[in-house]
Nucleic acid binder design. Structure first.
Lengths: 279, 279
DNA sequence: CAGGATCGATACCCGCGCGGTATCGCTGCC
DNA sequence: GGCAGCGATACCGCGCGGGTATCGATCCTG
């Protein structure tokens, strides 16, 4: 199978529409139809059920969609990492969620910078659940993840810290008088619904909470008394006095891990991980 | 980058010889030269240093070799898993080292077979250090590995059992009178050298021990007093009375893990892992 | 030191396959 | 029933991948 065929299939499988997929790929529709047919013929497998009105994935097609995405990521990663290796750009790219673990991150960067063979570390701030993809497609060399929110499947990891969670409320809210709360007391608040983040496709799930795109936006919403947030307790450090954090007893413990793609033989990654584990 | 280009590059990078690589690929040498040049031009990266007498990898070339292998494995896995998904062959393929963990394996298969939604499990016996590749390129769905010998990088795992190691000696050998030994006493034996296994390329490392290809062959060599073996203590169960096992106190502990490729959403794999963890 | 052997690069040609346009055939809808 | 939407099919042209022949550089050999 050629990557061209995989790219074509992924486009059709995602659009479920040959015309739109062809447009997205920048080719005409007939060659796309033919390419998919050829792919099916070569595999000996029907990937799509098509009537003249609708296209849908078969079970085998769903499998190929998932696998093809992974394979294309791997090819992309090969390209990117080769280019980076060539330009002699020895620097590391560290992916981290925007506005998370800043003091841990600072300590890590300081500790690593003190190592004898340290190289430059570029930071790549990204949205939630995006880091795994950055590592897999080669845009990042190493990332800070937070279990159980981020999946670490297929990555090598080292645990850095575990902590409880707090709920962040606007100052003056009745619950701020409490020394601790339970998660059910918070998620059910009608006056302070949990905000909704966009999914990978950019759309928002249904629900009562406000739609947010950034951390700053979210904090402002909390100050305005329109939302609340459950977050790791280390986020207290960055709170202004208009916001109050109250421990949530039964919220899942958050583990911050440093993660990197398997088989990454890079000395630089190894050094950064070593610095991290010594924190 | 197309997989064709990656295959071509891997062939050249492995052979370090355009002629042989072309032969291996079943094409003539000139198109291969051209393809590699094109790849370098498109990447904007020099991958190979070539004089008219010798070919060698640049730093970027080594990176691409490693990454390209991973990417090609992923493409191959996509193809295989899609084919398997299509034939409705719901069975699982379990990879395990030939002649290892047989009683654990038997218990696992029994426990899984008792599950309500169990599917057929095919066994794929393979040589040491081969399982990871089988999982990554889609020939196997799940494997039994032994840490620290097998690398679990890039795989999801669940620990099943930890055990010490024993040295397997021919009956009558002086050391068989001991209740335990230290590893230095065994690895230094001039009369019973450790056997040598072939590497991934089929060649044997240098050393004093006999060359072996199979477990049966090895056991016979031990019976004949020509070799000894350090193995997990569970291998005692299969020994004939011509062989004696003596615990090795300072040998590393062996952990048997069940491993599967990340993102494997298969219900069957999940069921097998669940059965394994309940053992 | 000359001649040959080896090996990658280059030149040139051919044919397949990818992509394009035009059109068909089916289906659901007003 | 006519129309609109959409995938499949037919057909064409050209670019590119692959082939052979040959060059040019380098090392070995007598």
């Amino acid at each position: 199978m050629e990557t061209r065929e995989l790219r074509y299939f992924v486009a059709v499988a995602e659009e479920l529409h040959f015309g739109r997929a062809a447009q997205r790929l920048g080719i005409a529709q007939p060659p796309l139809s033919r390419a998919i047919h050829q792919l099916e013929r070569r595999l000996g497998v029907v990937l799509l059920d098509r009537t003249s009105r609708a296209v849908s994935l078969t079970a085998a097609g769903s499998v190929l969609l998932r696998e093809a995405r992974a394979a294309l990521d791997a090819v992309e990663a090969a390209e990117r990492r080769t280019r980076r290796a060539a330009t002699g750009h020895a620097g590391l790219v560290l992916a981290t969620k925007a506005g998370a673990s800043s003091e841990l991150l600072a300590k890590l960067l300081d500790a690593y910078a003190a190592e004898p063979d340290a190289v430059a570390v570029d930071l790549l701030l990204c949205g939630p659940a995006e880091q795994e993809r950055l590592l897999r497609d080669g845009r990042a060399d190493v990332a800070l993840l937070h279990r159980p929110f981020d999946s670490t499947a297929g990555l090598d990891t080292e645990e850095l810290r575990t902590e409880g969670q707090v709920v962040i409320l606007p100052a003056g809210h009745p619950l701020t008088a409490r020394t601790h709360v339970r998660s059910a007391e918070v998620t059910g608040l009608a006056d302070l619904p949990m905000p909704r983040w966009p999914g990978r496709d950019g759309t928002y799930p249904d629900g009562p909470g406000p739609e947010v795109r950034s951390h700053a936006q979210l904090l402002q919403l909390i100050e305005l008394g329109r939302a609340c947030l459950i977050a790791p307790e280390s986020s207290r450090a960055r709170l202004r006095d208009t916001l109050v954090a109250v421990p949530v007893l039964d919220a899942p413990t958050v583990t911050t891990v440093i993660a990197w793609p398997p088989h990454s033989r890079s000395r630089a990654v190894a050094g950064l991980v070593r610095a991290a584990t010594r924190l």
